[in-house]
Design a binder for these strands. Structure first.
Length: 826
DNA sequence: AGCACGCCGACT
DNA sequence: GTCGGCGTGCTC
């Protein structure tokens, strides 16, 4: 493929680096491609890497970020850089290279990668202004169109105007085409301004020295309100929020404005990191935990430079170690970045860290408005933040003295962006650690397969967290060492192909029900996982075999008895529950399978006196919380839920954990499904039975011999890992290869197919050109969900050595989705 | 996003 | 033959 740059030409101009390599803000240019521009003499002394600049790209005016200054240029006649939008560089060389890595690794555009690292939506705050030049060439006036003439007259009369203002006043064509031409021909001068939204709280600060205050107060004998304001300000230290100040002094805005006009007071937006919430008992006393755990982590942190370690243990052990590691980092006057898979988990981590540490701890979820986000960005950039906690987007936080990166529950799929650049934030965090030469700690109880593969091949350090006493208990229980370190209770599987079943629909085995009843009889509580909402996952005609499917997707419609409807769980299409078959007209319909609603129904029939309830995404979030709280208090004794249970993890402690059907997904053509099933079940076991040796978990499955189910039964991560890594190796799946998935969606079936075949041709062509490439293509083929929301979906998989996949990522034209390291193949 | 270029069908 | 519609690829 012709991504090889043409032979670079040496600059004929003497002097330093006459060219600049720019990451242009054009989102459609895929891959780590940059463009070179000439540095005009007027900007030569000022232009440095990391600056935001204005360039022409095709016919468009776009912003860009200077990556490097260069002696060489891959094209003969580069365009000039038009202007420096902001003199202070936004990004240092580490973050510029981080952006390059992000775009190259995930096949996103440089524009997306760079903009992730800048204040959000920066393009929105760039304005181009135009003003007439003195002594414009009168003779050339005929060269202007009537509209351009009007624009010029307007500018002469009213002074500088922005592109948007001229578009509104004169017309869009003039604004977009005429203005650039008039600049080129010397009629107009153009400049750029960046006006970021003001962040944070409006604060007032005193501009007077203490002894001057008394003098001014005397002068202001006729203005009691202003006197009160000055006194209040003089008694407080530093900038005071205007709102507080006015209340305190009992004064109004006009008095404050008068002081500002007189030059006694400055009023400005100041972003302040929100006050931490008050410490709760659960956040106190973190530091007392396992000193043995800490010693091994400390040894790792003491090594100089970059390295990755996997901290294996349950959250109650991981978090105290995080806190100690952060303290160590702060003591060395460096910053720590802490990532969690979801904002909810990030907030929980933040609350625990902030309760224990002294230092400025920021939680990215606290900054919601554009202004406060810019404020937080600035504060981080200025080095005012010691610890930055957040979900995956926090990996882009502008920390310049980064000394430690922590990724909690590194195995979670939420770290992968589902749209946009499709960045895997855990991997980005590791790269960030490499760029900053600092340690990266991956915390987990069930490492991702690719992570543990790196442990096994000794690229990552491994630290097993557990006190001697826990280890002894565990050995007593299972006698299998750490690999079988189940988080609590005992586990049994039930083979649903042969087990005696009971209850309406036969969804519960006798063993399951006995376990549940025993727990309740002893005054315990129970959590039941049902991986589906609704009451029946398939509605089928008993006469002709017709199955109700979504008109827009390939999905079967799910029966929801509570709203008497059939619902598509992919696009939310709804239709009334049918009475007869639309094909043959027969009235004998069979409801097949089950969901939260039907399990709840069966339980109410079997345990009429028991308080049972359910949570799933059909319910509003407040109700989910209320039900969870009821369960925690014991007002509800049996809780049925989907994976939404994880959103109320802390309330789930119980004595019985039932998995109604563990193998949903295991039959999908998706190599990540076993890992998902195993992680989900292990995590739920930790949440429900964690720390308890008596509790009972029963796993119902149609394929109890599957390695994911078997490993769940014996509670062994190693058992799971060994089987799974063998499957991955056999099929050439990650971590043995890098996998890229190209997805195309189109309303028209033929169009989707043709386009998929065309891209396959193109990719094959690129591969054929490079004879030593060992990348393999799979497909094109319809996706597992071949139709969704009325559109047809096709995909192509490319897999091969890490360094050979990226060149393919820039091949597909717009309309294709490129997904590197996809988390599923549906 | 916009523009140039090339391929195909409809017309002089 | 040539004009133009649209699909495809390039923009330093």
């Amino acid at each position: 493929m012709s991504t090889e740059p043409e032979t670079p030409i040496q600059s004929p101009i003497a002097g330093p680096a006459p060219f600049a390599e720019v990451a242009v803000g054009a989102a459609e240019v895929r891959g780590a491609r940059t463009f070179h521009y000439a540095v005009p003499p007027a900007l030569d002394a000022r232009l440095v890497p990391g600056q935001l600049v204005l360039v022409e790209f095709g016919k468009r005016h776009l912003h860009g970020v200077v990556m490097t200054r260069s002696d060489q240029c891959p094209v003969a006649d580069p365009k000039p850089i038009l202007d420096i939008i902001w003199d202070t560089p936004f990004l240092d060389h580490r973050r510029l290279e981080f952006a390059r890595w992000l775009a190259g690794r995930f096949g996103a555009s440089m524009a997306e990668a760079v903009e992730n690292l800048l204040p959000a939506n920066i393009a929105r705050y760039i304005t181009l202004y135009y003003v007439p030049r003195d002594g414009t060439p009168a003779a050339a006036a005929a060269a202007l169109t009537a509209a351009e003439r009007r624009a010029l007259d307007r500018l002469r009369a009213d002074g500088p105007m922005s592109t948007a203002e001229i578009a509104a006043a004169i017309g869009k064509t003039v604004a977009v085409k005429g203005l650039p031409r008039m600049v080129n021909e010397g009629w107009l001068r153009r400049w750029t301004e960046l006006e970021l939204p003001a962040g944070g709280t409006v604060c007032a600060s005193l501009l007077l020295a203490t002894r001057e205050v008394d003098r001014v107060i005397v002068e202001l004998f006729r203005a009691p309100k202003q006197r009160a304001l000055l006194r209040a300000l003089a008694n407080l230290v530093g900038p005071v929020p205007v709102k507080e100040l006015l209340t305190l002094a009992g004064a109004g805005h006009s008095s404050l404005k008068a002081l500002q006009r007189a030059g006694h007071v400055r009023i400005e937006h100041i972003y302040r990191i929100p006050e931490p919430p008050p410490a709760t008992p659960s956040t106190a006393g973190l530091r007392e935990a396992g000193s043995a755990d800490w010693r091994s982590l400390e040894t790792f942190l003491d090594r100089d430079g970059h390295g990755v370690c996997v901290l294996l243990g349950d959250p109650t052990r991981r978090i105290p170690s995080y806190v100690q590691a952060i303290e160590k980092t702060l003591a060395a006057r460096r910053q720590a970045l802490v990532l969690a898979p979801t904002e909810r988990e990030a907030r929980a981590l933040y609350e625990q860290i902030v309760a224990t540490l002294s230092g400025q701890v920021a939680f990215s979820g606290d900054a919601r408005t554009p202004g406060s986000r810019v404020g937080l960005w600035r504060a981080a950039r200025a080095g005012e933040i010691d610890v930055y906690v957040g979900p995956r987007s926090a990996v882009y936080a502008p920390l310049t003295r980064l000394g430690l990166v922590i990724v909690d529950r590194e195995e979670d799929r939420s770290y992968k962006e589902a749209a946009g650049g499709r960045v895997q934030a855990r991997d980005a965090a590791i790269e960030l650690g490499r760029a900053h030469l600092c340690p990266v700690v991956l915390g987990t109880a069930t490492p991702a397969v690719e992570t543990f593969y790196n442990v096994e091949s000794e690229r990552y350090r491994f630290i097993l967290m557990q006190s001697d006493d826990l280890l002894r208990q565990t050995r007593l229980k299972v006698g299998r060492g750490w690999g079988a370190l189940g988080p609590g209770g005992t586990v049994g599987t039930v083979d649903m192909r042969t087990a005696p079943v009971m209850g309406h629909g036969g969804m519960l085995s006798e063993e399951f029900f006995t376990g549940l009843k025993d727990a309740l009889a002893q005054g315990g509580k129970a959590v039941l996982l049902v991986n589906r909402r609704g009451s029946a996952s398939m509605t089928i005609c008993r006469e002709c075999g017709y199955v109700f499917t979504c008109p827009d997707c390939d999905n079967r419609l799910v029966q929801h008895r509570s709203i008497e409807s059939l619902v598509c769980h992919s696009c939310n299409h709804r239709q009334p529950a049918p009475r007869r078959c639309p094909e043959c007209g027969a009235g004998r319909l069979r409801l097949w399978g089950h969901g939260t609603e039907s399990v709840l129904g069966a339980l109410r029939a079997l345990l009429p006196l028991e308080r049972v309830d359910r949570i799933d995404s059909n319910l509003p979030i407040e109700q989910v919380r209320a039900v969870a709280e009821g369960f925690r208090r014991g007002a509800i004794r049996v809780l049925v839920g989907t994976s939404l249970l994880f959103s109320v993890e802390a309330a789930l402690k119980a004595d019985f954990l039932g998995i109604v059907q563990a193998d949903i997904g295991l039959t999908f053509p998706d190599f990540t499904a076993p890992e998902r099933v195993f992680q989900q079940l292990m995590r739920l076991r930790q949440a429900v039975l964690g720390g308890d040796l008596e509790g009972r978990m029963v796993v119902q499955s149609l394929m109890p011999d599957h390695h994911a189910i078997e490993a769940t039964r014996i509670g062994s991560y190693l058992k799971f890992y060994r089987s799974e890594i063998a499957v991955r190796q056999e099929h050439d799946f990650p971590p043995f290869t890098r996998l890229a998935r190209f997805i195309y969606t189109h309303r028209d079936a033929t169009n989707a197919r043709t386009e998929a075949l065309r891209l396959a041709e193109l990719l094959n062509g690129v591969l054929a050109e490079n004879s030593d490439s060992s990348v393999q293509l799979m497909g094109p083929a319809p996706c597992f969900r071949a139709r969704e929301r009325g559109a047809y979906r096709w995909h192509i998989l490319a897999y091969g050595p890490d360094e050979q996949v990226p060149p393919l990522l820039a091949v597909p034209h717009r309309g294709w989705t490129v997904d590197v390291d996809p988390v599923d193949l549906v």
